[in-house]
Design a binder for these strands. Sequence first.
RNA 1: GCUCCCUUCGUCUAGUGGUUAGGACGCUGGCCUCUCACGCCGGUAACAGGGGUUCGAAUCCCCUAGGGAGCGCCA
Length: 470
Amino acid sequence: MTVRTRFAPSPTGHLHIGGIRTALYSWLEARRHGGQFILRVEDTDQERSTQAATEVILEGMHWLGLDPDEGPFFQSQRFDRYRQVTEQLLDQGKAYHCWCSQDDVNQMREEQRRRGEKPRYDRRCRDHPNPRPGVEPVVRFRNPIDGSVVIDDLIKGRVVISNEEMDDLVIARGDGSPTYNFAVVVDDLDMEITHVIRGDDHFLNTPRQINIFHALDAPLPAFAHVPMILGDDGQKLSKRHGALSVLEYRREGFLPEAILNYLVRLGWSHGDQEIFSIEEMTSLFNIGAVNKAASAFNTEKLMWLNQHYIKSTPPKKLALLLKPLFEEQGVDTSTGPALAEVAEANHERAKTLIEMVEKSGYLFEDFGEYDPKAAQKQLKAGIRQPLASLRQALAGLGPWEREPIHEVVTTVLEEFDLKFGKLAQPVRVALTGSTVSPPIDITLVLVGRQRSLDRLDKALAYIDGIESNS
RNA sequence: GCUCCCUUCGUCUAGUGGUUAGGACGCUGGCCUCUCACGCCGGUAACAGGGGUUCGAAUCCCCUAGGGAGCGCCA
Protein backbone atom coordinates (compact mmCIF):
# COMPACT_ATOMS: atom_id res chain seq x y z
CA MET A 1 0.00 0.00 0.00
CA THR A 2 1.42 3.37 -0.91
CA VAL A 3 1.67 5.96 1.76
CA ARG A 4 -0.62 8.94 1.32
CA THR A 5 -0.37 11.90 3.65
CA ARG A 6 -2.10 15.22 3.61
CA PHE A 7 -1.81 18.71 4.95
CA ALA A 8 -5.18 20.19 5.77
CA PRO A 9 -4.93 23.82 6.84
CA SER A 10 -7.90 26.03 7.39
CA PRO A 11 -7.74 29.40 5.64
CA THR A 12 -9.05 31.34 8.62
CA GLY A 13 -5.77 32.88 9.67
CA HIS A 14 -2.28 33.18 8.31
CA LEU A 15 -0.26 30.03 7.85
CA HIS A 16 2.56 30.17 10.38
CA ILE A 17 5.63 28.22 11.24
CA GLY A 18 3.76 25.61 13.27
CA GLY A 19 1.58 24.72 10.32
CA ILE A 20 4.58 24.66 8.07
CA ARG A 21 6.31 22.14 10.26
CA THR A 22 3.29 19.87 10.16
CA ALA A 23 3.20 20.24 6.40
CA LEU A 24 6.90 19.46 6.17
CA TYR A 25 6.56 16.32 8.29
CA SER A 26 3.65 15.12 6.17
CA TRP A 27 5.52 15.89 2.99
CA LEU A 28 8.65 14.12 4.20
CA GLU A 29 6.77 11.06 5.33
CA ALA A 30 5.21 10.75 1.90
CA ARG A 31 8.50 11.36 0.11
CA ARG A 32 10.35 8.83 2.22
CA HIS A 33 7.93 6.11 1.24
CA GLY A 34 7.64 7.21 -2.34
CA GLY A 35 4.01 8.01 -1.68
CA GLN A 36 1.76 10.99 -2.28
CA PHE A 37 1.32 14.23 -0.43
CA ILE A 38 -2.08 15.86 -0.71
CA LEU A 39 -3.09 19.43 0.03
CA ARG A 40 -6.61 20.00 1.22
CA VAL A 41 -7.98 23.36 2.23
CA GLU A 42 -10.50 23.03 5.02
CA ASP A 43 -12.85 25.87 4.35
CA THR A 44 -16.13 24.53 5.61
CA ASP A 45 -16.49 27.62 7.74
CA GLN A 46 -17.62 30.02 5.04
CA GLU A 47 -17.80 32.85 7.54
CA ARG A 48 -14.19 32.91 8.52
CA SER A 49 -12.35 31.51 5.54
CA THR A 50 -10.67 34.08 3.34
CA GLN A 51 -9.24 34.06 -0.12
CA ALA A 52 -6.16 35.90 1.12
CA ALA A 53 -5.36 33.18 3.64
CA THR A 54 -5.77 30.53 0.96
CA GLU A 55 -3.31 32.33 -1.25
CA VAL A 56 -0.76 32.56 1.52
CA ILE A 57 -1.05 28.82 2.03
CA LEU A 58 -0.57 28.05 -1.64
CA GLU A 59 2.22 30.53 -2.21
CA GLY A 60 4.00 29.76 1.04
CA MET A 61 4.05 26.04 0.42
CA HIS A 62 5.27 26.51 -3.10
CA TRP A 63 7.98 28.88 -1.96
CA LEU A 64 9.25 26.24 0.45
CA GLY A 65 9.07 23.53 -2.18
CA LEU A 66 6.36 21.59 -0.38
CA ASP A 67 4.34 21.06 -3.51
CA PRO A 68 1.47 18.61 -3.29
CA ASP A 69 1.18 15.59 -5.55
CA GLU A 70 -2.58 16.02 -5.49
CA GLY A 71 -4.76 19.00 -4.80
CA PRO A 72 -5.32 21.56 -3.58
CA PHE A 73 -8.78 20.24 -2.84
CA PHE A 74 -11.35 22.49 -1.23
CA GLN A 75 -13.91 21.14 1.17
CA SER A 76 -16.29 23.88 0.12
CA GLN A 77 -16.61 22.10 -3.20
CA ARG A 78 -17.48 18.76 -1.70
CA PHE A 79 -20.61 19.61 0.24
CA ASP A 80 -22.74 17.25 -1.86
CA ARG A 81 -20.55 14.38 -0.87
CA TYR A 82 -20.75 15.17 2.85
CA ARG A 83 -24.51 15.46 2.59
CA GLN A 84 -24.66 12.08 0.93
CA VAL A 85 -22.69 10.45 3.74
CA THR A 86 -24.78 12.25 6.32
CA GLU A 87 -27.94 10.77 4.74
CA GLN A 88 -26.35 7.36 4.83
CA LEU A 89 -25.63 7.60 8.56
CA LEU A 90 -29.14 8.90 9.17
CA ASP A 91 -30.63 5.98 7.26
CA GLN A 92 -28.55 3.53 9.22
CA GLY A 93 -29.53 5.10 12.52
CA LYS A 94 -25.96 6.07 13.22
CA ALA A 95 -26.86 9.72 13.28
CA TYR A 96 -29.96 11.62 14.28
CA HIS A 97 -31.66 14.97 14.00
CA CYS A 98 -31.47 17.37 16.88
CA TRP A 99 -33.69 20.40 17.28
CA CYS A 100 -32.03 21.84 20.34
CA SER A 101 -31.09 25.45 19.84
CA GLN A 102 -27.61 26.71 20.43
CA ASP A 103 -28.90 28.58 23.43
CA ASP A 104 -30.32 25.38 24.88
CA VAL A 105 -27.04 23.64 24.46
CA ASN A 106 -24.99 26.51 25.82
CA GLN A 107 -27.15 26.71 28.87
CA MET A 108 -26.82 22.98 29.38
CA ARG A 109 -23.06 23.25 29.22
CA GLU A 110 -22.91 26.16 31.61
CA GLU A 111 -24.83 24.24 34.20
CA GLN A 112 -22.59 21.24 33.81
CA ARG A 113 -19.55 23.40 34.16
CA ARG A 114 -20.98 24.94 37.30
CA ARG A 115 -21.45 21.48 38.70
CA GLY A 116 -17.80 20.70 37.98
CA GLU A 117 -18.66 18.32 35.21
CA LYS A 118 -17.22 18.15 31.76
CA PRO A 119 -19.62 20.07 29.52
CA ARG A 120 -21.27 18.00 26.83
CA TYR A 121 -24.53 17.60 25.01
CA ASP A 122 -26.93 15.49 27.08
CA ARG A 123 -28.31 13.52 24.11
CA ARG A 124 -31.89 14.62 24.76
CA CYS A 125 -32.85 14.26 21.09
CA ARG A 126 -30.98 10.99 20.66
CA ASP A 127 -33.84 8.69 21.45
CA HIS A 128 -36.70 11.13 21.76
CA PRO A 129 -36.96 13.25 18.63
CA ASN A 130 -38.56 16.55 19.47
CA PRO A 131 -39.21 18.44 16.24
CA ARG A 132 -39.84 22.13 16.66
CA PRO A 133 -41.70 23.96 14.00
CA GLY A 134 -39.63 26.44 12.10
CA VAL A 135 -36.33 24.98 13.33
CA GLU A 136 -33.94 23.35 10.89
CA PRO A 137 -32.44 20.48 12.86
CA VAL A 138 -28.73 19.76 12.99
CA VAL A 139 -27.51 16.22 12.56
CA ARG A 140 -25.66 14.60 15.45
CA PHE A 141 -23.50 11.54 15.38
CA ARG A 142 -24.64 8.70 17.60
CA ASN A 143 -21.45 8.15 19.54
CA PRO A 144 -21.05 4.87 21.41
CA ILE A 145 -21.88 5.22 25.09
CA ASP A 146 -19.87 2.35 26.47
CA GLY A 147 -16.36 1.20 25.94
CA SER A 148 -13.39 3.19 24.87
CA VAL A 149 -11.32 4.11 21.88
CA VAL A 150 -7.71 3.12 21.51
CA ILE A 151 -5.43 5.46 19.62
CA ASP A 152 -2.09 4.05 18.59
CA ASP A 153 -0.43 7.32 17.81
CA LEU A 154 2.84 7.15 15.95
CA ILE A 155 4.29 9.90 18.11
CA LYS A 156 2.45 9.71 21.40
CA GLY A 157 2.08 5.98 21.64
CA ARG A 158 -1.04 4.20 22.81
CA VAL A 159 -3.70 6.33 24.45
CA VAL A 160 -7.07 5.06 25.54
CA ILE A 161 -10.02 7.42 25.75
CA SER A 162 -13.34 6.42 27.26
CA ASN A 163 -16.45 6.97 25.20
CA GLU A 164 -17.95 8.61 28.28
CA GLU A 165 -15.74 11.57 27.52
CA MET A 166 -17.40 12.16 24.20
CA ASP A 167 -20.80 13.53 23.40
CA ASP A 168 -22.86 13.29 20.25
CA LEU A 169 -21.12 15.80 18.06
CA VAL A 170 -22.87 17.79 15.38
CA ILE A 171 -21.83 16.56 11.95
CA ALA A 172 -24.10 18.77 9.88
CA ARG A 173 -25.33 22.26 10.68
CA GLY A 174 -28.88 23.40 10.26
CA ASP A 175 -28.07 24.66 6.79
CA GLY A 176 -26.70 21.26 5.85
CA SER A 177 -23.04 22.22 5.82
CA PRO A 178 -20.67 19.72 7.40
CA THR A 179 -18.60 20.34 10.52
CA TYR A 180 -14.90 19.74 10.80
CA ASN A 181 -14.75 16.37 12.52
CA PHE A 182 -17.09 14.88 9.99
CA ALA A 183 -15.68 16.41 6.83
CA VAL A 184 -12.20 15.33 7.83
CA VAL A 185 -13.21 11.72 8.12
CA VAL A 186 -15.09 11.66 4.83
CA ASP A 187 -12.17 13.32 3.08
CA ASP A 188 -9.45 11.21 4.59
CA LEU A 189 -11.49 8.23 3.56
CA ASP A 190 -12.24 9.38 0.03
CA MET A 191 -8.71 10.55 -0.53
CA GLU A 192 -7.36 7.28 0.81
CA ILE A 193 -5.13 8.92 3.36
CA THR A 194 -2.97 6.35 5.12
CA HIS A 195 -1.22 8.66 7.60
CA VAL A 196 -2.99 11.50 9.30
CA ILE A 197 -0.25 13.84 10.48
CA ARG A 198 -1.50 16.96 12.22
CA GLY A 199 -1.00 19.27 15.16
CA ASP A 200 -1.40 18.02 18.70
CA ASP A 201 -4.33 20.35 19.22
CA HIS A 202 -6.35 17.83 17.19
CA PHE A 203 -5.50 14.92 19.42
CA LEU A 204 -8.73 14.77 21.40
CA ASN A 205 -10.69 14.92 18.15
CA THR A 206 -9.16 11.66 17.11
CA PRO A 207 -11.30 9.28 19.17
CA ARG A 208 -14.45 11.00 17.87
CA GLN A 209 -13.20 10.60 14.34
CA ILE A 210 -12.26 7.00 14.92
CA ASN A 211 -15.83 6.33 15.99
CA ILE A 212 -17.05 7.88 12.76
CA PHE A 213 -14.64 5.75 10.75
CA HIS A 214 -16.11 2.72 12.49
CA ALA A 215 -19.64 3.86 11.76
CA LEU A 216 -18.68 4.07 8.12
CA ASP A 217 -17.13 0.58 8.26
CA ALA A 218 -13.93 2.14 7.08
CA PRO A 219 -10.34 1.13 7.76
CA LEU A 220 -8.41 3.43 10.07
CA PRO A 221 -5.49 5.50 8.90
CA ALA A 222 -2.42 5.78 11.11
CA PHE A 223 -2.35 8.89 13.28
CA ALA A 224 0.57 11.05 14.28
CA HIS A 225 0.11 14.16 16.39
CA VAL A 226 2.92 16.64 16.20
CA PRO A 227 3.56 18.62 19.40
CA MET A 228 2.95 22.33 19.51
CA ILE A 229 5.63 24.94 19.00
CA LEU A 230 6.21 27.54 21.67
CA GLY A 231 7.46 31.06 21.11
CA ASP A 232 10.91 32.39 21.94
CA ASP A 233 9.64 33.14 25.41
CA GLY A 234 8.32 29.66 26.07
CA GLN A 235 4.72 30.72 25.65
CA LYS A 236 2.50 29.11 23.09
CA LEU A 237 3.22 30.35 19.61
CA SER A 238 0.57 32.78 18.49
CA LYS A 239 0.27 35.96 16.54
CA ARG A 240 1.51 37.80 19.58
CA HIS A 241 4.43 35.51 20.10
CA GLY A 242 6.41 35.58 16.92
CA ALA A 243 4.10 33.50 14.81
CA LEU A 244 4.75 35.25 11.56
CA SER A 245 3.04 34.35 8.34
CA VAL A 246 5.28 32.11 6.21
CA LEU A 247 5.67 34.78 3.61
CA GLU A 248 7.04 37.16 6.23
CA TYR A 249 10.09 34.95 6.37
CA ARG A 250 10.64 35.41 2.69
CA ARG A 251 10.32 39.15 3.02
CA GLU A 252 12.85 39.14 5.82
CA GLY A 253 15.37 37.30 3.72
CA PHE A 254 15.24 33.74 4.95
CA LEU A 255 16.06 30.89 2.61
CA PRO A 256 13.63 27.98 2.26
CA GLU A 257 16.44 25.52 2.97
CA ALA A 258 17.14 27.21 6.28
CA ILE A 259 13.53 27.19 7.36
CA LEU A 260 13.04 23.56 6.40
CA ASN A 261 16.28 22.53 8.08
CA TYR A 262 15.38 24.43 11.23
CA LEU A 263 11.92 22.95 11.34
CA VAL A 264 12.96 19.39 10.71
CA ARG A 265 15.34 19.59 13.68
CA LEU A 266 12.72 21.16 15.92
CA GLY A 267 11.32 18.05 17.48
CA TRP A 268 13.26 15.51 15.53
CA SER A 269 16.89 14.53 15.27
CA HIS A 270 19.29 12.13 13.66
CA GLY A 271 22.09 11.72 16.18
CA ASP A 272 24.15 14.88 16.33
CA GLN A 273 23.50 15.98 12.79
CA GLU A 274 22.39 19.59 12.43
CA ILE A 275 22.58 20.21 8.71
CA PHE A 276 20.20 18.33 6.47
CA SER A 277 19.80 18.69 2.74
CA ILE A 278 16.34 18.04 1.37
CA GLU A 279 17.60 14.68 0.12
CA GLU A 280 18.92 13.74 3.54
CA MET A 281 15.68 14.75 5.18
CA THR A 282 13.60 12.69 2.86
CA SER A 283 15.66 9.60 3.40
CA LEU A 284 16.27 9.95 7.14
CA PHE A 285 13.11 11.50 8.53
CA ASN A 286 10.78 9.25 10.41
CA ILE A 287 7.54 10.52 11.89
CA GLY A 288 7.74 7.89 14.60
CA ALA A 289 10.97 9.43 15.91
CA VAL A 290 9.45 12.84 16.51
CA ASN A 291 9.62 14.06 20.13
CA LYS A 292 6.52 14.02 22.26
CA ALA A 293 7.24 17.29 24.00
CA ALA A 294 6.49 20.76 22.70
CA SER A 295 9.51 22.78 21.68
CA ALA A 296 10.31 26.45 21.67
CA PHE A 297 10.98 28.34 18.49
CA ASN A 298 14.43 29.91 18.63
CA THR A 299 15.04 32.65 16.11
CA GLU A 300 18.78 32.75 16.89
CA LYS A 301 19.28 29.23 15.67
CA LEU A 302 17.19 29.85 12.58
CA MET A 303 19.46 32.81 11.88
CA TRP A 304 22.52 30.64 12.22
CA LEU A 305 21.13 28.12 9.77
CA ASN A 306 20.10 30.87 7.42
CA GLN A 307 23.61 32.22 7.42
CA HIS A 308 24.92 28.74 6.82
CA TYR A 309 22.76 28.40 3.73
CA ILE A 310 23.55 31.90 2.54
CA LYS A 311 27.23 31.00 2.76
CA SER A 312 26.77 27.88 0.74
CA THR A 313 24.46 29.29 -1.91
CA PRO A 314 26.16 30.41 -5.15
CA PRO A 315 26.30 34.23 -5.40
CA LYS A 316 24.54 34.15 -8.73
CA LYS A 317 21.58 32.46 -7.16
CA LEU A 318 21.64 34.84 -4.22
CA ALA A 319 21.57 37.72 -6.69
CA LEU A 320 18.26 36.50 -8.04
CA LEU A 321 16.80 36.43 -4.54
CA LEU A 322 18.30 39.77 -3.61
CA LYS A 323 16.80 41.66 -6.52
CA PRO A 324 13.17 41.75 -5.35
CA LEU A 325 14.29 42.61 -1.84
CA PHE A 326 16.25 45.61 -3.05
CA GLU A 327 13.27 46.65 -5.12
CA GLU A 328 11.01 46.39 -2.14
CA GLN A 329 13.34 48.76 -0.31
CA GLY A 330 13.06 51.16 -3.20
CA VAL A 331 16.72 50.82 -4.16
CA ASP A 332 17.64 51.19 -7.82
CA THR A 333 20.30 48.54 -8.31
CA SER A 334 21.04 49.49 -11.89
CA THR A 335 23.37 52.26 -10.73
CA GLY A 336 25.76 49.98 -8.88
CA PRO A 337 27.70 46.74 -9.05
CA ALA A 338 26.22 43.43 -10.19
CA LEU A 339 24.20 41.82 -7.41
CA ALA A 340 26.19 38.61 -7.73
CA GLU A 341 29.29 40.57 -6.77
CA VAL A 342 27.48 42.15 -3.86
CA ALA A 343 26.42 38.71 -2.73
CA GLU A 344 29.90 37.32 -3.19
CA ALA A 345 31.38 40.06 -1.01
CA ASN A 346 28.74 39.79 1.69
CA HIS A 347 27.62 36.22 1.91
CA GLU A 348 29.73 35.59 4.99
CA ARG A 349 28.59 38.81 6.57
CA ALA A 350 24.84 38.54 6.81
CA LYS A 351 22.43 36.29 8.61
CA THR A 352 19.56 37.20 6.33
CA LEU A 353 19.19 38.51 2.82
CA ILE A 354 17.48 41.62 4.06
CA GLU A 355 20.46 42.29 6.29
CA MET A 356 22.65 42.08 3.21
CA VAL A 357 20.40 44.53 1.43
CA GLU A 358 20.48 46.95 4.32
CA LYS A 359 24.25 46.72 4.57
CA SER A 360 24.73 47.41 0.87
CA GLY A 361 22.85 50.65 0.44
CA TYR A 362 26.03 52.68 0.03
CA LEU A 363 26.79 50.78 -3.16
CA PHE A 364 23.77 52.19 -4.94
CA GLU A 365 22.96 55.47 -3.28
CA ASP A 366 24.87 58.16 -1.47
CA PHE A 367 24.82 57.73 2.26
CA GLY A 368 23.89 60.76 4.29
CA GLU A 369 26.07 61.66 7.23
CA TYR A 370 29.16 59.81 8.37
CA ASP A 371 28.73 57.73 11.46
CA PRO A 372 29.77 60.45 13.97
CA LYS A 373 32.07 58.23 16.00
CA ALA A 374 33.67 56.78 12.89
CA ALA A 375 34.27 60.17 11.35
CA GLN A 376 35.66 61.56 14.56
CA LYS A 377 38.10 58.75 14.91
CA GLN A 378 39.11 58.10 11.31
CA LEU A 379 38.76 61.31 9.35
CA LYS A 380 41.43 63.38 11.01
CA ALA A 381 44.07 65.76 9.72
CA GLY A 382 46.86 63.22 10.04
CA ILE A 383 45.37 61.00 7.38
CA ARG A 384 44.78 63.76 4.85
CA GLN A 385 48.02 63.33 2.94
CA PRO A 386 47.84 59.52 2.59
CA LEU A 387 44.18 59.80 1.58
CA ALA A 388 44.97 62.44 -1.03
CA SER A 389 47.86 60.38 -2.31
CA LEU A 390 45.64 57.33 -2.60
CA ARG A 391 42.98 59.32 -4.39
CA GLN A 392 45.56 60.49 -6.86
CA ALA A 393 46.95 57.04 -7.54
CA LEU A 394 43.49 55.55 -7.84
CA ALA A 395 42.46 58.16 -10.37
CA GLY A 396 45.24 57.15 -12.69
CA LEU A 397 44.79 53.41 -12.26
CA GLY A 398 44.22 51.23 -15.30
CA PRO A 399 41.66 48.49 -14.82
CA TRP A 400 39.42 48.98 -11.79
CA GLU A 401 40.01 45.57 -10.29
CA ARG A 402 40.91 44.12 -6.98
CA GLU A 403 44.61 43.32 -7.50
CA PRO A 404 45.78 46.61 -8.95
CA ILE A 405 43.73 48.46 -6.36
CA HIS A 406 45.30 46.43 -3.62
CA GLU A 407 48.76 47.24 -5.01
CA VAL A 408 47.99 50.93 -5.03
CA VAL A 409 46.87 50.82 -1.42
CA THR A 410 50.02 48.94 -0.46
CA THR A 411 52.18 51.44 -2.25
CA VAL A 412 50.62 54.36 -0.42
CA LEU A 413 51.03 52.45 2.82
CA GLU A 414 54.76 52.11 2.20
CA GLU A 415 55.06 55.68 1.08
CA PHE A 416 53.76 56.93 4.42
CA ASP A 417 54.98 54.01 6.49
CA LEU A 418 51.53 53.10 7.68
CA LYS A 419 49.93 49.90 8.89
CA PHE A 420 47.14 48.59 6.70
CA GLY A 421 44.42 49.42 9.15
CA LYS A 422 45.58 53.00 9.52
CA LEU A 423 44.60 53.70 5.96
CA ALA A 424 41.89 51.13 5.37
CA GLN A 425 39.59 52.42 8.08
CA PRO A 426 39.59 56.06 6.96
CA VAL A 427 38.99 54.90 3.40
CA ARG A 428 36.18 52.71 4.59
CA VAL A 429 34.52 55.59 6.38
CA ALA A 430 34.99 57.76 3.32
CA LEU A 431 33.41 55.17 1.04
CA THR A 432 30.66 53.76 3.21
CA GLY A 433 30.11 56.23 6.02
CA SER A 434 30.80 53.52 8.59
CA THR A 435 33.64 51.37 9.87
CA VAL A 436 32.18 48.13 8.60
CA SER A 437 32.37 46.73 5.09
CA PRO A 438 34.01 43.94 3.10
CA PRO A 439 37.83 44.09 2.63
CA ILE A 440 38.79 47.56 1.51
CA ASP A 441 39.98 46.63 -1.98
CA ILE A 442 36.76 44.80 -2.64
CA THR A 443 34.77 47.68 -1.24
CA LEU A 444 36.54 50.01 -3.66
CA VAL A 445 35.82 47.70 -6.55
CA LEU A 446 32.14 47.51 -5.66
CA VAL A 447 31.67 51.22 -5.06
CA GLY A 448 33.19 51.86 -8.45
CA ARG A 449 35.84 54.25 -9.67
CA GLN A 450 33.94 57.49 -10.04
CA ARG A 451 31.96 57.09 -6.89
CA SER A 452 35.05 56.15 -4.93
CA LEU A 453 36.96 59.19 -6.14
CA ASP A 454 34.02 61.45 -5.39
CA ARG A 455 33.70 60.08 -1.92
CA LEU A 456 37.40 60.40 -1.23
CA ASP A 457 37.17 64.01 -2.35
CA LYS A 458 34.25 64.52 -0.07
CA ALA A 459 36.21 63.02 2.83
CA LEU A 460 39.18 65.28 2.11
CA ALA A 461 36.89 68.26 2.08
CA TYR A 462 35.37 67.09 5.32
CA ILE A 463 38.79 66.90 6.94
CA ASP A 464 39.63 70.35 5.67
CA GLY A 465 36.39 71.62 7.07
CA ILE A 466 37.21 70.23 10.48
CA GLU A 467 40.65 71.85 10.30
CA SER A 468 39.42 75.31 9.43
CA ASN A 469 36.91 75.17 12.25
CA SER A 470 39.43 74.34 14.92
C1' G B 1 -13.74 21.99 36.84
C1' C B 2 -13.16 17.42 33.94
C1' U B 3 -10.26 14.31 30.30
C1' C B 4 -5.67 13.57 27.86
C1' C B 5 -0.49 14.67 27.03
C1' C B 6 4.45 16.48 28.31
C1' U B 7 9.17 17.49 31.66
C1' U B 8 17.94 16.37 30.04
C1' C B 9 22.23 22.90 29.76
C1' G B 10 18.65 29.63 28.61
C1' U B 11 16.97 27.09 23.64
C1' C B 12 16.94 22.61 20.05
C1' U B 13 18.50 17.86 21.21
C1' A B 14 21.78 12.79 21.92
C1' G B 15 20.98 9.18 25.44
C1' U B 16 16.69 3.44 25.80
C1' G B 17 20.07 0.16 33.33
C1' G B 18 26.74 0.87 34.11
C1' U B 19 28.92 7.62 29.86
C1' U B 20 33.97 12.31 32.96
C1' A B 21 25.66 12.95 30.70
C1' G B 22 27.57 14.09 24.11
C1' G B 23 26.44 17.73 20.05
C1' A B 24 24.28 22.40 18.20
C1' C B 25 22.44 27.64 18.86
C1' G B 26 23.37 31.53 22.27
C1' C B 27 26.79 33.65 25.66
C1' U B 28 32.01 33.87 26.65
C1' G B 29 38.00 33.59 26.57
C1' G B 30 41.70 33.23 22.72
C1' C B 31 43.77 32.74 17.69
C1' C B 32 43.36 34.74 12.67
C1' U B 33 42.87 39.90 10.92
C1' C B 34 42.48 46.44 7.25
C1' U B 35 36.82 46.83 10.03
C1' C B 36 32.85 43.49 10.36
C1' A B 37 32.08 38.69 9.47
C1' C B 38 33.79 33.75 8.36
C1' G B 39 36.99 29.99 10.22
C1' C B 40 39.75 27.49 14.17
C1' C B 41 40.81 26.30 19.52
C1' G B 42 38.83 26.59 24.60
C1' G B 43 35.05 27.76 28.48
C1' U B 44 29.98 28.30 30.66
C1' A B 45 25.57 25.52 31.61
C1' A B 46 21.03 20.24 32.33
C1' C B 47 18.70 14.89 33.97
C1' A B 48 11.76 19.39 37.83
C1' G B 49 11.15 17.32 43.13
C1' G B 50 10.19 13.02 46.19
C1' G B 51 9.59 7.94 46.81
C1' G B 52 10.37 3.02 45.13
C1' U B 53 12.54 -1.44 41.76
C1' U B 54 17.78 -2.80 41.11
C1' C B 55 24.40 -4.48 42.79
C1' G B 56 23.63 -0.05 39.74
C1' A B 57 19.14 4.55 37.36
C1' A B 58 18.53 10.49 32.97
C1' U B 59 16.80 5.64 31.37
C1' C B 60 11.56 1.11 34.67
C1' C B 61 7.16 2.09 38.36
C1' C B 62 4.33 5.50 41.69
C1' C B 63 3.28 10.34 43.75
C1' U B 64 3.86 15.69 43.72
C1' A B 65 4.87 20.13 41.20
C1' G B 66 5.06 22.80 36.77
C1' G B 67 3.67 23.28 31.59
C1' G B 68 0.42 22.21 27.41
C1' A B 69 -4.01 20.56 24.71
C1' G B 70 -9.18 19.64 24.46
C1' C B 71 -14.14 20.02 26.38
C1' G B 72 -18.44 24.61 19.78
C1' C B 73 -23.76 24.34 14.75
C1' C B 74 -14.26 26.86 14.83
C1' A B 75 -10.84 24.14 12.49
